[in-house]
């Protein structure tokens, strides 16, 4: 009898990871907080006027890089409905769109910040929190569980507590915190990820911004599925934020929401927030299958992507 090659498969034993369409770059045209809204439409127009040339520069740089100039560029705009609720989508969205149009900018996608915390029953922030792998200080050999300060994340070793009494009654002197991968001197960063009051957790702005970057890079999955997909806009905009989809596609002809790289054009006042975002993202272990998927896709287009995901994120502070 000849031998037979038998193949047996079990779906529950296999790991399947969905793919998401990807643009070359996702440009964030702005991030609207209540104080910006209160300052009126002129503040918005001013911001879009500052952003427009940078968005154009990035678009043309990708057009030069991609054969035939067919760069896929999508733009997005984030509205804070998490830390403070103001106005309504019906009132605010048209105002934002008009201000952008006056500066020749098209907003392809509009997202709500609260969806980075939770949306459609999926707690994206918890998902990302579970994927944090702490940057180990030297002499971390695995014998003890990683030192975690609940709700905080840093890039090194914290200062020992000052004033604790040691043996012989001496109090320990101050010692500096240390950055793990320092170059000569430390730049130690300690970021608050969330706080809890009355059993209710509030995620910090940098943590939600880190989730937002991961969403834009198409690197998040929940049970192997893409957790949030843009929903095409309806005829009008609703009167409450909950009724607005987490990510609304405003432009039917837009390139995909997620992209190989992201660019955020921000006011310099966001610099500390973005340092915190990078500290967080440097410690997020993205699913290896998803990373491979994105690298394979970009490789297929002859695009050399940066290995480290923080290097796929760029900023213009203006």
């Amino acid at each position: 009898m000849t031998s037979v090659n038998a193949t047996f498969g079990e779906v529950t034993a296999e790991r399947r990871v969905a793919a998401t369409p990807l643009s070359h770059v996702s440009i964030e045209l702005g991030h609207l907080y209540m104080e910006d809204f209160e300052a009126g439409p002129e503040r918005l127009r001013e911001q879009f006027r500052r952003v427009a040339p940078w968005a154009g520069a990035v678009r043309s740089s990708w057009q030069n890089r991609v054969p035939g100039g067919r760069a896929r560029v999508s733009t997005c705009f984030l509205i804070d409905d998490y830390f403070s609720r103001f106005s309504t989508p019906a009132e605010l969205v048209p105002m934002v769109l008009d201000a952008a149009a006056e500066c020749d900018l098209t907003i392809d996608y509009l997202a709500r910040e609260s969806s980075c915390a939770e949306s459609n029953g999926i707690e994206l922030a918890r998902l990302v929190e579970g994927r944090l792998v702490n940057d180990p200080p030297p002499d971390t050999n695995g014998s003890r569980p990683p030192v975690k300060e609940s709700g905080w994340l840093c890039n090194g070793a914290r200062s020992p507590q000052v004033g604790t009494v040691q043996a012989m009654g001496r109090t320990s002197p101050w010692a500096p915190p240390l950055q793990n991968a320092k170059r000569g001197h430390s730049i130690f960063v300690d970021v608050e990820l969330w706080d809890e009051r009355g059993g209710r957790r509030t995620w910090s702005c940098p943590f939600l911004a880190a989730v937002w970057q991961l969403l834009r890079l198409g690197l998040l999955r929940a049970d192997g599925q893409v957790p949030l997909r843009p929903v095409p806009r309806g005829d009008g905009f609703p009167d409450d934020w909950e009724s607005l989809p987490a990510i609304v596609q405003l432009n039917p002809a837009a390139a995909p929401f997620s992209a190989y790289t992201t660019l955020s054009v921000l006011s310099p006042r966001f610099l500390p927030v973005e340092l915190a975002v990078r500290t967080i993202l440097s410690q997020v272990a993205v699913d290896a299958d998803v990373l491979r998927q994105v690298i394979a896709r970009s490789g297929g287009e002859d695009i050399q992507l940066e290995e480290e995901l923080v290097d796929r994120i760029s900023y213009v502070f203006t």
Binding site: P138, S282, V286
Partner: peptide, 9 residues
Amino acid sequence: RQPWSHYLA
């Protein structure tokens, strides 16, 4: 020692 993101890649 490289930045931590290097190792997570």
